[in-house]
Amino acid sequence: MDLRPPSERVSPRAKRYWALRAAAGWIVVVALELVLGLTAWPWLGDALPVVLPVTVVAALAHVIVMPRWRFHVHRWESTDTAVYTQSGWFDQERRIAPLSRIQTVDTERGPLEQIFALATVTVTTASAAGPLKIHGLDADVAQELVDRLTKVAAAARDDAT
């Protein structure tokens, strides 16, 4: 037996969103290196000619590779009986939860996600270890999914423990 990946891809705009978010993180790192190297830590200042190019190369590799890889991996599917997600890039995971066990369905839209009209859907069960998250969904698709799941979850309402 083998497991096929979930059927639906997330929004292609998610690639740019992930790239921007990663770039923002790297800019902070480079800024810290510069500020600390030029003021507080002279030893870092001496090493900057090596450290800075290494950081920039790592940053470029991450910002270019990670979003494509992630987009290739991130998928989701919702059937009449279960929700199935696949996420990650270097390390990956697949999660399956039966619809009858769903407790809450939320959407979340951070400021960056709003720029790209994206949303994250979180499906929780009674287990604290088991929320399924679908990142980088098109906002409209996310809303449809939430509406559908909320309806199903309400229909199958037991205490889901």
Binding site: A97, A129, L132
Partner: peptide
């Protein structure tokens, strides 16, 4: 058991292994 998680790190995928988690309340 109220859900199934299958985790595979890069190195686990290379050697065909996986970690199965049964989630529960």
């Amino acid at each position: 058991v109220i859900g199934i998680t299958i985790r595979r790190s890069f190195f686990q995928r290379r050697v065909g292994l996986a970690t199965l988690e049964a989630t529960t309340a």
